[in-house]
């Protein structure tokens, strides 16, 4: 454990104080407050479409946090996949389930206070634990650790097999989503050769229209 800690960045609690933050930390803190506020609004607002739009703010702010942690490629993947596709999917899901546009008073279920108690208890426990454990840990941020070149190197040199397995998983999810959302009743009977089901007149009319 001590060798792991020694290898993992320097431990200099005397030099790095929380009272003299660096510029990166200040930016991280400000963006983090914005992210947290947007997330809270997103899970508490009564307007369902607004919740999805506040989710955009949260995920975009998290992309900025990834940039501050020198994970550039992941930041842009976050923007592409989360802001580009997941939020659009969520908005389509809200529309297709006929979510009300205005305020919906029954957006929260009856066990809201139990949920609030559970969330506050979990937050208190986790924050106490994390602060106590990592109070003195310091990240030496050096640019280039998450660039596209480095990402391609580690992804296709060390993680090729999981990568390919994941592509198979995506294909399975695609097929599953298509099978689930296919409407089974609206199957069009295919006319067999020799037995024309539609009247001849309409077929000739259709061919004339073309």
């Amino acid at each position: 454990m001590s060798t792991l800690l020694a290898a993992a960045g320097s431990l200099e609690p005397a030099v790095r104080s929380f009272l003299s933050p660096t510029g990166q930390e200040i930016v991280f803190l400000l963006v983090g407050i914005a992210v947290l506020g947007a997330a809270v609004v997103s899970v508490t607002t009564k307007q369902l479409v607004h919740a999805a739009l506040w989710l955009v703010v949260t995920l975009g702010g998290l992309a900025v946090e990834f940039l501050l942690l020198t994970a550039e490629f992941i930041a842009w993947v976050q923007v592409l996949i989360y802001l580009g596709s997941v939020v659009v999917l969520v908005l389509f899901g809200l529309m297709l389930t006929r979510a009300p546009i205005g305020r919906s008073p029954d957006a929260d279920s009856g066990n809201r206070w139990v949920a609030l108690a559970v969330a506050l208890a979990a937050a208190g426990t986790l924050v106490t634990l994390v602060v106590d454990a990592f109070r003195t840990s310091w990240i030496d941020l050096s640019p280039g650790a998450g660039s596209t070149e480095a990402t391609g190197t580690y992804l296709f040199r060390y993680w090729v097999l999981p990568f390919e397995a994941l592509s198979v998983l995506l294909l399975a999810a695609l097929v599953g989503a298509i099978v689930l959302s296919r409407n089974g009743k609206g199957r069009i009977p295919r006319p067999r050769p020799g037995k024309l089901r539609t009247p001849v007149r309409s077929v000739t009319a259709a061919s004339k229209e073309r």
């Binding site: 929380f18 983090g32 997330a39 899970v43 969330a119 990592f134």
Partner: peptide, 24 residues
């Protein structure tokens, strides 16, 4: 950067998500 900042932010964000899953 202190490791505590991203760790605390992640913990708080996770708990907001827990609240959303339970309350929505």
């Amino acid at each position: 950067m202190h490791l505590a900042y991203p760790a605390v932010l992640a913990a708080l964000l996770f708990c907001v998500g827990v609240y959303g899953v339970l309350a929505r």
